[in-house]
Amino acid sequence: MLKKVAIAAVFSLMVSGVAHAALDAVKGLGKDLGKEAASTAKQGALSAVTKKLKKVQNEKGPIKFKTGKAEVDPACDKTMTAIAAIMTDYPGFHVQVDGHTDNVGKPEANMKLSQDRADAVVKYLVDKKGVAANRLSAKGFGDTQPIADNKTKAGQAKNRRVDFTVTKM
């Protein structure tokens, strides 16, 4: 009888151990799924705000500069006001201003011009629209990321642009 009780106790402990191991595995899986869901939600939010910033330029007009210059055209103020409003609506987000050029000229000069233009947009948003400087960064890409064919004037015009990318929440 004692032997049967001991075997039952050992069996119970084994089953209990398996159950605990299974529960631990489920908990671990739950944590992983939770992290994955949170990451997916975060990426979705970043993407949604990036799309809103892009839509502003499609509706209000692109940010323009004089040829070879890094001064924001004052005619772009409506676009900049709308961009600042979106940033106000999403106070925890960080936005990278991406400067791009066409392929006319030397690549080194285009890289510098694109960085200077991205910096100018950041300065405009901070100085004239009151966006906190720590919520913005600037990156020049020169002619390395064309969205159109640089063999035509229309393509070159499309490649001379400023994009906004939400990088952090």
Rank of each mutant, 00 (worst) to 15 (best):
F93G: 02
V49H: 05
V166W: 06
K151P: 05
A120D: 02
V72T: 04
D73I: 08
K60Y: 06
P91Y: 09
L29Q: 12
I147A: 06
N110M: 07
G17I: 01
D143G: 05
V5N: 02
P91G: 04
E36W: 08
L46P: 11
A157Y: 08
L23N: 14
A70N: 11
G130L: 09
R117A: 01
F11M: 03
R160H: 06
A25F: 09
S114V: 06
T167K: 14
A138E: 10
V18M: 12
H20I: 15
L53E: 01
R117C: 07
K153E: 15
T152K: 08
G30Q: 07
V18G: 06
K3I: 15
D102A: 03
D127C: 07
E71T: 15
M111A: 14
A109L: 07
L113M: 10
D98L: 15
M14H: 11
D143L: 01
A9F: 09
G28Y: 03
K55E: 15
D77I: 06
K66G: 11
N103L: 01
V72F: 01
K31V: 15
K69P: 04
Y124T: 15
G44Y: 00
G99A: 07
V122R: 05
A133K: 13
L33A: 13
Y124W: 14
K35T: 07
E108D: 07
V15G: 06
V15A: 12
F11D: 01
A9D: 13
V122L: 10
K54T: 15
T81L: 03
A25C: 01
D143N: 12
C76S: 10
G130C: 14
L29V: 01
K128A: 09
D32C: 01
D102H: 00
D127H: 08
V15N: 11
V122P: 14
G68K: 05
A132R: 05
L29R: 15
V49E: 03
K123W: 08
T167S: 13
A6F: 05
G44W: 00
P91T: 04
G105Q: 01
G28C: 00
A84P: 12
K66C: 00
T50S: 14
V49Q: 05
I147E: 05
K4G: 03
K64L: 10
H94G: 00
C76E: 00
L33M: 14
V10C: 10
A19G: 14
D119Y: 02
H20C: 14
A41L: 05
N159L: 04
Q156T: 13
F65N: 02
L2M: 11
D89W: 00
F164V: 00
A37Y: 10
F164C: 04
K51Q: 07
A45F: 09
G130F: 13
Q43P: 04
A85V: 01
T101I: 03
T167W: 11
T144H: 02
L113S: 07
H100G: 07
K139H: 15
T50V: 08
L125R: 09
A84S: 14
G68C: 04
I86M: 10
L13V: 14
